[in-house]
Amino acid sequence: MAVVTSSPPAPTKRLLESESAGRRARNRLATVLMAACLLIAMLPLIWILWTVVSRGAGLLGDSTWWTNSQRGITSRRVGGGAYHAIVGTLVMALMTAVISVPIAIGTAIYLVEYGRGRFAKLVTFMVDVLTGIPSIVAALFIYALWVTAFGFQRVSFAVSLALVLLMVPVVVRSTEEMLRLVPRDLREASYALGVPRWKTIVKVVLPTAFSGIVTGIMLGLARVMGETAPLLILGPYTSSINLNPFDGNMAALPTFINQDRNNQALDPAFDRVWAAALTLILIVMVLSVLGRLLSRFGTVKK
């Protein structure tokens, strides 16, 4: 083997040198770059919020905004409200959630707790594919099924079906992540008490992951409530209030925005577009806060 020559003693250096000028400069550069990236990322967000709030806040204070529909109000006229669209959006979101959440949570539980081998891999792959489907494709698929194949009318329930296709993969993914975060220790502790597997999942695993699952559902809902393509294809706009998801047109905030955007040269329509946009943002925000409260409700008080 090669002989290891001892290196000549280095000129005596202090062990704890002060940081070199080069390193300090690199550190500063990196810090500035990171901060710049943060700013660039935040800028559009703040800009959007500012634009929407400054242009939309005016109408939200009107007493009729939260209580009236747009029935009989043309784009030239001031007045009316967004009640029909708010209710429509909430009805569709609720239907979507009621259908998607059990399917998605069931799928996630299967994948994490039971899924082994090929079939589980296939399911995971399908969920991935579904995640990437553009909303208009989901809408057209439901159109082909609901209208062309079954011969039904274009109603808001069909919109919800299209939205289910968009919401399920989001919730499956987030729920899966949350269930995987539950330590194996806890499952084993439950098994060791003689608790069967399904009860362990229902009473130990799901409650432990509860807040994360709720957050995932809220994210999925937020995504779905702003979707426009399924509404354009399956849910024609109406200026009146309709609560029946199986009969007649039902308004929603995105289609309400789209309607008045066609006449944005006229001031009343222009104002309503921004007010409706702000309303949509507020609803999503309120839902997120509710989700947070709900998830806190489930845990033991400190």
Binding site: P183, D185, L186, E188, A189, S190, V204, P207, T208, F210, G298, T299, V300
Partner: peptide, 8 residues
Amino acid sequence: RPNPFPTM
């Protein structure tokens, strides 16, 4: 490792 159920 002690593993009490965290939600209980």
